[in-house]
C-alpha cells in the first residue's frame, strides 16, 4: 500500500508540475494541423469516424465535449475538430 501511495503522490505531483510548466503552450504540430487532419487521426482511434453529416451542428458541440472528456482529447484538437465538422455540414 505504501508503494502505491507514493506512486499516486508522485503521479499527482508529476501531472501538477506538467500543468504548471505547460501553461498555455500548445503543441506546435497540433496548432499547425487542420481540423480535418485531426479528425482523421483522432476520431478513428476507438471507433469508426462519424462523418459531419451524421449529426447536426448543435449535436456536434455536445459530442465534442463528450469525446473530450471520455477520450481525453486536448482542448485545442477538440475545438478544431468540432469546427471542421460543423463547417462541412
Amino acid at each position: 500500500m505504501k508503494k502505491l501511495t507514493l506512486l499516486s503522490i508522485a503521479l499527482v505531483a508529476g501531472i501538477g508540475a506538467a500543468i504548471l510548466i505547460i501553461g498555455c503552450v500548445t503543441s506546435k504540430t497540433v496548432t499547425a494541423k487542420s481540423g480535418m487532419q485531426l479528425w482523421g487521426e483522432n476520431c478513428i482511434r476507438c471507433h469508426n469516424a462519424p462523418s459531419s453529416g451524421d449529426y447536426s451542428n448543435a449535436q456536434w458541440e455536445t459530442i465534442g465535449m463528450h469525446m473530450k472528456l471520455r477520450a481525453n482529447l486536448t482542448d485545442v484538437e477538440t475545438n478544431k475538430i468540432v469546427e471542421f465538422l460543423k463547417s462541412s455540414n
Binding site: 503521479l11 500543468i19 503543441s27 506546435k28 504540430t29 485545442v76
Partner: peptide
C-alpha cells in the same frame, strides 16, 4: 481527468 500536450506527444490521465 485531462490531457496535456507535450510537444508533439500527449499525456492523458
Amino acid at each position: 481527468r485531462g490531457c496535456l500536450p507535450l510537444g508533439s506527444s500527449k499525456l492523458n490521465y
